[in-house]
Structures are given as C-alpha cells and as structure tokens.
Design a protein around this nucleic acid. Structure first.
Length: 265
DNA sequence: CTATAAACCTGCTGGC
DNA sequence: TGCCAGCAGGTTTATA
C-alpha cells in the first residue's frame, strides 16, 4: 500500500521529470477518481510537495493538484498505461509526454484546486507531524493522552503522518512492542525505541523505493524492494528474524496485524 | 473521547 | 472447473 516511503518515492521521481514542464490537457476517464473543475488552458509545474501520504503538484498560476493514491493508486508515465484497463486520468504535456493515474479500486483521486497553497495548508492542519519532526519527549507526552492501542495510534494520520499498516507492523516488531498495548502504558524508554524504529523502517523503505507487496509501482512502473525485507508484515507462520518463533496474524483495530508473541510483550 | 462499522471499489484467494 | 464468501486497508462519515 502506498505509505510515506512509496509516496515520497513517487514524489521525487515526479519532481525530477515534470518540474518546469507544462501540462496542457487533463482527460478524466472515470469521474470517481477526479474532483474539481474541468481542465482549462496550460499550467506550468513549479514544485511537487508531499505531506503524509498526500502529494501536492504546484502550478505557477497558484492552482494545483492534490493527489492521494489510497490503496491501489499509481501515478505513472509508462506507455503501457495509455491503454491499461484501470487508467482513470491522463495528463498530457506540451512536450508530448504523458502521465497516467491508474487505480483498480478507485479509492484514490486527483483533485484540481484553485489555490493549492491554501489546500495544502488545510490538509496539513489535519495531519500530525512526520516521525522525524517530533522529539521523544513530545511523542511521550502525546501518547500519554490516549488510551487507544499503540498500533491504532501510530496509524492515525492526525497523530503521526505517513505510517500505514506495513510500516506500523514492522516498527512495532523492531521496537519489541505488542501492538495491543495501550499507548499511555508505554514507558519513556519504549517510546524512544518506538520512534527510532519507526524512523528506521521508513528510512529503509525509502532507501529501497518502497514496498511492492502487490499493487504499488513507482513513477516509472517499477517495483520497490522493501517487500523482500518485511520484518513481520504478511509473514504468517514464518520464523521471527530475532528469536525464530512463528509470526502470527492477529487483528488489532480491525486490521491485519503480524507479531512475534515471544518478542513483543 | 473512544470504539466500531460501514462505505468507497476490484481482484485475488480459499473452500467446497 | 466454477461459484461465492471473505479479505486487502487509506480515509471519511456515521453511529453507539
């Protein structure tokens, strides 16, 4: 699933290809993946930003696009997508190149807005800090305020931005914390370990270009590499990398959760 | 405040 | 081989 490392990988690639370029047409193939007015004229791209799992494409005019890949969205510029079954939106540039928004399940979208700076500000107001923007002390204080499970809490985008199910599972395993623990029961040492672990798995994901467990692909249509290094995610019955006990699948907060019961107390 | 569930969707998998 | 229930999980919205 596109989480922070996957979205950041796409953002970087998108920026490298289209900052400075001009988009002259946007064709909507499925209305469910598009919001906003119909496309008018040409727009030069000046910057591609990211907040949590959101991408913001900034135009010189002040207008722009907010993009969210949700579960199965892909932002790609491979020719294959010109005629692919699930291509939902096409973007054409004056130099002839094309960008496609592809999404099987259509949860994601491209949203065209009049004032992208204002839109970005609005979204950011709802997002918590990214994991490296918060100190152990601040994180401890925030966690003290909630009795929810630690896994639910770190998956909450208004608490911390960017973490999804893959990295949440792996970070908790790395920190040796049971996902069912209440957030306010974590000791300071555990909070520090958790923050370090979250940053560690996100950095690893970033270094490998994300996780392509099933549907995720980068801007060039390629796969990431993190799926080959999952610590727990989806590894039901496989041995724990630390102690060799079997990884078990449980459900926390209604979501699939993988843990080593022996390591994560 | 918290918790749970449904809704949005399609494709894949497991059981029979 | 085919059918169907169940599952995948980011986010919003509704309900308890």
């Amino acid at each position: 699933m596109p989480e922070l490392p996957e979205v950041e990988t796409v953002r970087k690639q998108l920026a490298a290809e289209i900052v400075g370029a001009t988009i002259c047409e946007l064709v909507v193939l499925d209305l469910r993946c598009f919001e906003g007015p119909s496309w008018q004229g040409s727009e030069q791209v000046i910057e591609i930003k990211r907040g949590g799992k959101y991408i913001f494409v900034v135009f010189a005019s002040g207008r722009g696009m907010q993009i969210h890949l949700k579960m199965t969205g892909r932002l790609v510029m491979e020719d294959f997508y010109e005629t692919a079954k699930h291509t939902r939106v096409k973007l054409k540039m004056i130099d002839g190149r094309r960008i496609y928004y592809w999404d099987t399940r259509m949860f994601g979208y491209i949203k065209l807005v009049e004032d992208i700076a204002r839109q970005e500000k609005m979204i950011r107001a709802k997002l918590g800090p990214e994991p490296w923007e918060i100190s152990d002390k601040e994180l401890s204080a925030k966690l003290q305020k909630t009795g929810r499970t630690i896994k639910d809490t770190i998956l909450d985008q208004s608490f911390l931005a960017g973490i999804g199910n893959i990295y949440a599972n792996d970070a908790l395993w790395l920190a040796k914390i049971n996902p069912r623990r209440k957030a306010n029961s974590l000791k300071k040492k555990e909070v520090a370990e958790l923050r370090k672990s979250i940053i560690s798995v996100l950095d690893r994901g970033l270094a490998l270009g994300g996780a392509s467990d099933n549907t995720y692909r980068d801007f060039y249509g390629g796969k990431g590499g993190y799926q080959n290094e999952f610590l727990t995610y989806g590894r039901t019955g496989e041995p724990c990398n630390r102690c060799g006990a079997k990884i078990e699948r449980i459900v926390v907060g209604g979501r699939g959760t993988w843990i080593c019961e022996k390591c994560q107390k």
